[in-house]
Amino acid sequence: MMLNDDNTLKIEVNDDVIEEIEINSSKNLMYIVKQDKCLDLTIYLSATVVSFKIFFDLKKNARANIVLIDTSKGKLDLSANVIMNEEKSSFEWCLASISNNDDDKKIDVSIDQIVGRTTAHMYNYGVVLSNGRLSFAGVGKIYPRANGAKVSQVAKIINYDERAFSSARPILSIDCDDVVAMHSASVGKVDENALFYLQSRGLKESDAKALLTLAHLSPAIEKIKDEVAKERVIKEIKELL
């Protein structure tokens, strides 16, 4: 590990690694995943982070599976940049974020697939409560030489309150014909009928919202491999509601 001039902590992944990190203040990280290696990284953003930048450089046939659980407070500028400049690398990003009272969160993920036979999947799930703000921007760039690349992007946000602000912008810029691409984005109000159904069986509004929130964020939460950590996240989300 070493620190660059701009305070970026540089981490070289020379072996298969399963890692969990907790971020509770501003940080810049860079992961270089070496040829044939696999990085399984779960990131928890808690307390007040303000700014978090993370870079991934994937070498030939390298894999990175990233799960990011964001329950941080206040302001957050999160940017993730992924460079896939060698063949057959694959990257998966799965994020769950909650924006509560006065939180203001901007999450940008950009993935550059420069060469062929690379795979990138990006999933961003968010829940916005009271007057929280949350925006997702996902940029997937497929370069002209990236024959046989696969790319997908999903962004889904539900709002629990009229005062909530959210936006989800998926951008795919594809300069190559031989590509499999998929994207979907939705921003919507909580399903009033589902909320009523749960409440009509006795669940308090907050408990009903907690179940619906966990359901919405479950694609990310279910990827947490450590059962203890998963239970802790579930408990923390329930308490936020």
Partner: peptide, 13 residues
Amino acid sequence: VPGVPTADFLRSA
């Protein structure tokens, strides 16, 4: 209600 397991819901109820 997608994503909410029936048993979890019943227990909460």
